[in-house]
Amino acid sequence: MKLLILYFMCRVAAPVDFATVTGLTVCDDGIDYFDFAEALSELVDTGHLTLEDGLYAITEKGRANSAACESSLPFSVKRKCSAQLVKLNGILRRNAQVRAETHLRTDGGVALQLFLDDETGNLLTLEMFCGSQEQADRLARNFKAEPERIYNEVLSALLSSGEDGKDEREE
């Protein structure tokens, strides 16, 4: 059980919460939830995993022990793990590249920061004033749903000269 958890944790793109580790590990009827939860806790206690702010991450000790023992995992298990990880890692990478943060302002309202990154760094950062947390949450959800479209629209608006319907791209 511990080896399976370490195998997954070596391959996730970012720290994950308990529910995600559970979903990855308790993937068939042969794995008992309570055995899993105990094994996960022991891996944290022994320094193979860390638990910070509700997110689990693998340590160097965990990586070394996983690498030393992973050949004992059956190929069928590794194949099933890989299939699960492809989708999860895509989501984790996207979440790392498309972010939103809110901060209460001392003068009232909420400051909303929206970030769009790619593999090389930041593409877009927007900071906006919102009248309420609900408004900020709605704007953040909409940004996260279509960040590329919003980026392209901002870029188009900035490239447009606003005169006679022409823009700098046409000149």
Score class of each variant (00 low, 15 high):
I5C: 04
L6C: 02
F8G: 00
M9Q: 06
M9F: 09
C10Q: 15
C10H: 10
R11A: 05
V12S: 08
A14C: 06
F18E: 12
F18W: 10
T20C: 10
T20E: 11
V21A: 13
G23L: 04
T25S: 14
I31P: 00
I31V: 15
D32V: 14
Y33N: 05
Y33D: 10
Y33S: 07
F34C: 11
D35H: 13
F36G: 06
F36W: 09
A37Q: 10
A37S: 15
A39N: 08
L40M: 03
S41A: 10
S41Q: 10
S41C: 08
D45T: 08
T46V: 10
G47V: 02
H48C: 08
L49I: 05
T50W: 00
L51N: 04
E52P: 00
E52N: 05
D53W: 01
G54E: 02
G54S: 05
L55V: 03
Y56V: 00
A57V: 05
I58S: 02
I58M: 05
T59M: 02
T59G: 01
T59F: 01
K61V: 03
K61N: 03
G62H: 05
A64N: 10
A64D: 13
A67H: 10
E70I: 12
E70N: 15
S72K: 14
S72R: 13
S72P: 05
L73Y: 09
P74T: 06
F75P: 12
S76E: 07
K78E: 04
K80S: 09
C81N: 07
S82W: 02
A83S: 06
Q84F: 00
L85R: 07
V86P: 00
G90M: 03
G90E: 01
I91A: 06
A96E: 07
V98E: 00
V98A: 04
R99G: 08
R99A: 04
A100S: 14
A100Y: 02
A100I: 03
E101Y: 12
T102V: 12
T102A: 03
L104T: 13
L104I: 11
R105F: 06
R105M: 07
D107E: 11
G108M: 04
G108N: 09
G109F: 01
G109H: 11
V110W: 00
A111M: 14
F115Y: 10
F115P: 01
L116F: 13
D118P: 03
E119D: 12
E119T: 14
E119F: 11
G121N: 09
N122C: 15
L123C: 12
L124Q: 10
L124N: 06
T125L: 11
M128R: 10
F129A: 02
S132P: 00
Q133K: 13
Q133I: 06
Q133T: 09
Q135W: 01
Q135D: 01
A136N: 00
A136E: 01
A136T: 01
D137N: 13
R138V: 01
R141A: 08
N142E: 11
N142R: 11
K144V: 06
K144L: 07
K144Y: 03
A145W: 03
P147R: 02
E148A: 15
I150E: 07
I150P: 07
Y151Q: 15
E153C: 12
V154N: 06
L155K: 15
A157R: 12
L158A: 09
L158C: 11
L158T: 13
S160G: 09
S161Y: 06
E163Y: 14
E163H: 15
D164A: 12
E168L: 14
E168W: 14
R169V: 13
R169L: 12
E171N: 12
E171I: 13
